[in-house]
Nucleic acid binder design. Structure first.
Lengths: 211, 211
DNA sequence: TCTGGTATCAACCAAATAGTTAAACCAAAT
DNA sequence: ATTTGGTTTAACTATTTGGTTGATACCAGA
C-alpha cells in the first residue's frame, strides 16, 4: 500500500468522524479533539492533512452537498416525463436524507447560520437542487400536465418536509414515551413514507384530470 | 417604577438579545458576553436573573415555542370549516415565521441537536403544532372534503417548507449576486408567497371536485 | 541496510469563555 | 436622612479548546 492510499484512508476516517460530529453538535459545538478521537487519529494529523477546523468543516459541506446532488442528478438522467422525474426527485431526495443521516442537520445548521461558511462554488452546487426542480416543473407546465406553481416553493416543501421529518425524529420519540403521544405516519400499502410524500406532491402539482 | 418592573424590563432586554444571538449562532456559538453586551447589561446580571447559559437557552425555547403555538391556536379558534382552518394554519405559521426571525433557526438547530435541551413540558407544547394539523385534517377527512393524507407529513411539509424558505434566504441572495442565479417566488396577484403555499397545500389535500 | 520523505504522535501553549464574587448602587419605606 | 432589599457592576478565575511543535515511526527505493 503506497503512502497515497494511506493518506486517503486517514482523510476518509477523519471526514467520516467530522460528518458525525458536525451533524450532532454543529460547527461550534463539535470538538476537534472529539473528531480526532472518533477517527482514531491524533489531532495534529487533522491539521497535517486537512487544515484548521473551518477547512475541515468546508470539506464536510462539500462532500455532503456534492454527494446529494450527484445522486439526484444521476437518478433523473434516465427518466423521460416530468411526472416520472418529479416522483424520482422526491424519492431520491428522501432516500438520500435517510441514508446520510448527517446531511439534514449539517445543511440546516449551515443555512441557519446564514450560509456564512459555505464556499461560493459549493453554494452553486447546492443551487442545482433547486434548478432541477425548476426544470422539471417548467417542462411539466409547458406540457400542460402540471398546474402553475412556484418551483422554489415546491423545492422548499419537498426538501424542508423530508428534512424536518428526520429532524423531529428524536422529539417525536420522546413525546411517545414521555407523554404517550404518538406522531407517526401510518404507512400505506405502497411505498411507505416516501411514497406518501410523493403522493402529496403529485396531488399538489398535477393538473386535475377531466372525469 | 417598582423593582418588579425594573426586573421585568431587564429580563426582557436579555431574552430579546438572547433570541437574536442564539438564532444567529446557536447555543454553542453564542457568547454570554455578547448577549450581555447586546442587552446592555453586565454579564452577571444574566446569572442573577436567569441562571446559567443553558437556563437562558431553555427560556428562549419556551418563549419562541409558546408564542408560535399561542398565535396559531388563537387564530384557529374562530374558524368553522376544516378548509378555512387549514388555510389559516398555513397563513399564521408563515406569518409567525416571518415576524419572529429567530424562530426558524432556533427550532431547526435544537431539533438538529436531537432536542436534547428541550424540556419535556415545552416539547409537549411543540407537539401542539402537530396536533392542530392532525385535528384539522381528521375533521376534513371525516367530512369528506380532504383526501386521506398523513397529518404528520402535511405538518412537516408546511412547517419545513416555510422554515426552509426563510433559512435559504441568505444563500439565495448570494447566488443572485455572485452567480446571477435568481431563486425567488414569482408573486401571484393574490396573497404573495403565503398565498402560494396555501394554494399548494390545499391542492394537495382537497378531494378532487366533480366537474 | 541505509536514507529521505511522508505521516503520526505526545506534549505544550495562548486565547477565549462560562461562571463567580464582593463591592457599589439605587429606590422605596421608615 | 437612614436603612434595607433587591439590582447591577468590574474584576477575577478555572477550564476548555483550537492550534503548534519537535520528536518519532513508517515505508519505499537505492
Amino acid at each position: 500500500m503506497g503512502t497515497a492510499d494511506r493518506s486517503r484512508e486517514t482523510i476518509d476516517r477523519i471526514t467520516r468522524a467530522a460528518i458525525e460530529m458536525f451533524s450532532e453538535k454543529g460547527f461550534d459545538g463539535a470538538r476537534i479533539d472529539a473528531i480526532a478521537r472518533l477517527a482514531g487519529v491524533n489531532k495534529a494529523t487533522i491539521y497535517y492533512h486537512i487544515g484548521d477546523k473551518e477547512a475541515l468543516y468546508r470539506l464536510v459541506l462539500r462532500i455532503v452537498i456534492t454527494d446529494t446532488v450527484a445522486q439526484i442528478e444521476s437518478a433523473l438522467a434516465s427518466l423521460a416525463t416530468p411526472q416520472e422525474k418529479l416522483r424520482a426527485y422526491v424519492r431520491i431526495f428522501a432516500r438520500s436524507a435517510a441514508n446520510n443521516p448527517g446531511m439534514a442537520p449539517i445543511m440546516m445548521r449551515e443555512l441557519a447560520s446564514g450560509s456564512k461558511k459555505l464556499p461560493a462554488e459549493i453554494a452553486l452546487i447546492y443551487g442545482r437542487t433547486i434548478d432541477l426542480v425548476t426544470e422539471i416543473l417548467e417542462e411539466g407546465m409547458k406540457k400542460g400536465v402540471f398546474v402553475r406553481v412556484s418551483p422554489l416553493l415546491i423545492y422548499v416543501m419537498v426538501a424542508g418536509g423530508v428534512v424536518l421529518y428526520h429532524l423531529t425524529d428524536p422529539v417525536r420519540a420522546r413525546l411517545a414515551v414521555e407523554a404517550g403521544r404518538h406522531y407517526e405516519v401510518e404507512e400505506s400499502e405502497d411505498g411507505g413514507i416516501i411514497g406518501e410524500i410523493e403522493k402529496i406532491i403529485m396531488n399538489a402539482v398535477m393538473k386535475p384530470q377531466k372525469l
